[in-house]
Design a protein around this nucleic acid. Structure first.
Lengths: 338, 338
DNA sequence: AACAGCGAGGTGAGCGGTTAAAAATCGATG
DNA sequence: CATCGATTTTTAACCGCTCACCTCGCTGTT
């Protein structure tokens, strides 16, 4: 028998069924789009409409074991969440678009302290979410391994440096950097330095590799300074480079934010860009078109990264298996700085 | 009787109870920190430990009617999510910090299309979340009213322009703008213009009001151009102002991003800042310290906005009632542009 | 010694759905 | 017209947890 449905509060499937004159099971079928007689489908649909019925998510989750929740974990290092590079907003936007298509909700988890790390693991262990996306990991973060062990689908942004590398969606950092440096070589630049990113992040490592690759094919030697993707570090690194080798005529900078800092250092040092020295950045952040001069840079498709991460994860959640490595193209955007 | 606990899969409260030699109810009490005999508390705790038990969230939600999920709704207007003002990342960070203390999870919903609007309403109607924070609404958004009608706690960022205004956490836009303009007056500036923000957003409206208030007390007349908070619009507005009144000696700009654009227009027009013309922005975004010259601006405590929104909402969710209007202070940060 | 009072722990009824299995319905067929 | 197979619908058993209520053993009182 269907349960007594006298109770007030929001309507349940029982009240819908009662009103439509069918059993709860039939009502459930209609709600879930399973085949039923047009007659009962119609009456159930009307009852749903009249009562303003909305399925109870918790009840459904309890039996189906699906939460329709997808987590996006971001490391809450001030460096990145609060920098201007717009990486996180972009990823969030892409992820959000894709999840919306699949009618999943996005749970955002900022992993700052060790406490939040533990909290995330607990939450995932409780199967509070169906899958997890990890973005912008530093070094050999233990999280990918921990989550994989729990046995929940995981997708990363860029390959993980740790022991266990889950499927990932990355961009062609190496190729992009190579293209940038080749552009400088083609323009006849001879002393080409780089301001690399942190060497415990894929972006930092691979862009430096690309720089080295491109120079290896030429006769130029490599000149390297290291920053941490912040504007200040770009400024400092540029001053350092100028001091070490005043005759530089080009610099490939591993992020636009650092490139912006580098431009300031160059301006202060009285160097004209691109006449005296060419500058190429990486990321193509919004500001790149407003620097002085507008910045030539390597664009990475940030929103697309988010979309693809979500797409891959959704497949994993659905039980399909996927190509574990996905690399999105980068391309050189030529403006005035090189 | 306790249910047979032979089933494989992750441990349930039943298996914990069985292992600890107590009833499910007692195990539940221990897990939820209610008073029990030290003896049974200890044995339950050990069982939890050994089995790696984590409570099933859906089951708990089903009976308690709490989801421990809090939604943050952001309008996905490209203008803001993808601008450099870092408002959203800041709010997210503040919200996240506060929610973590209360052990709630954050569900992020981007409200772009009409479809996503409907989706959000549906999700809230299903009591998928315990409460909702709405940020940065445009005009008379119908969402506050719709959500309030559903009967779920809502907190906004800034008061809503619509018919129904939920409790909100805002900043002292008027006072900040007044302080900025007074600073210009004190410095002896005589022709003080403003580049206002969009007049369908509280920030845009109130900052213009503050500008007018401050001028009303003086003998200066007001000169107004309107932008939409983007850099480009600041640039355009500044050119317009210069054309209309070439003898301007100061401008109060309703956002740093627009101020950045204004600085570029001024530089291009050959005006020296602050010698020929003083510029004051609003927001104190990260970039403000790197503009040329560094920007004098009105700081608003973005992270704190997020924290307070979350704090207020959590109280509402807990059933406490709160002061429906909360205004956080803004303060003038004097750098070199004025 | 009998009994009220009290606190700890057990019992069982839900919470609101899904879904496998059983029952009912129905058109087609011999 | 009874029978059979194919659908559609109903029944009822969960999913895993909380909580109101009841039981039970113990102490303190008269």
């Amino acid at each position: 028998m269907s349960r007594a449905s006298t109770g007030r509060g929001r309507p349940t499937l029982d009240s819908v069924a009662a009103r439509a004159g069918v059993s709860r099971a039939t009502a459930s079928r209609v709600v879930n789009g399973m085949p039923v007689t047009p007659t009962s489908a119609e009456s159930v649909r009307r009852a749903v409409e009249e009562l303003g019925y909305v399925p109870n998510h918790a009840a459904r989750t309890l039996v189906t074991q699906r939460t329709d929740l997808i987590a996006l974990v971001l490391p809450e290092t001030t460096t990145r969440v609060f920098s201007d590079d717009q990486f996180f907003p972009g990823v969030i936007q892409g992820v959000s678009q894709q999840l919306e298509l699949a009618d999943k909700q996005l749970v955002l988890m900022l992993a700052g302290s060790a406490a939040s790390h533990a909290r995330i693991e607990r939450s995932v262990a409780a199967h509070h979410v169906d899958g997890v996306m990890l973005a912008s990991l530093h070094g050999a973060d233990p999280l990918p391994a921990a989550l994989t062990r729990i046995g929940i689908p995981v997708v990363c942004n860029e390959r993980s440096l740790g022991p266990m590398s889950p499927p990932y969606v990355g961009v062609d950092n190496v190729g992009g950097a190579e293209a940038a440096v080749r552009h400088l070589l083609t323009a006849g630049r001879t002393r080409i330095a780089t301001i690399a990113g942190p060497q415990d992040m894929i972006g930092g490592i691979d862009r430096l590799t690309g720089y080295r690759n491109a120079l290896r094919d030429s006769t130029r030697r490599s000149i390297v300074a290291v920053g941490d993707f912040t504007l200040d570090s770009g400024y400092t690194a540029m001053r350092q480079l100028l001091e070490d080798d005043p005759r530089l005529d080009a610099v490939f900078v591993a992020s636009d934010l650092m490139a912006d800092g580098a431009l300031q250092a160059l301006r202060q040092a009285g160097r004209r860009v691109p006449d005296d020295i060419a500058v190429i950045g990486f990321d193509d952040i919004a500001r790149a078109q407003y620097t002085d001069p507008p910045l030539t840079t390597v664009r990475q498709p940030i929103i697309e990264i988010g979309r693809q991460m979500a797409r891959q994860l959704l497949r994993l959640v659905a039980g399909d298996d996927i190509e574990p490595k996905m690399t999105l193209p980068t391309d050189l955007v030529v403006r005035q700085s090189a």
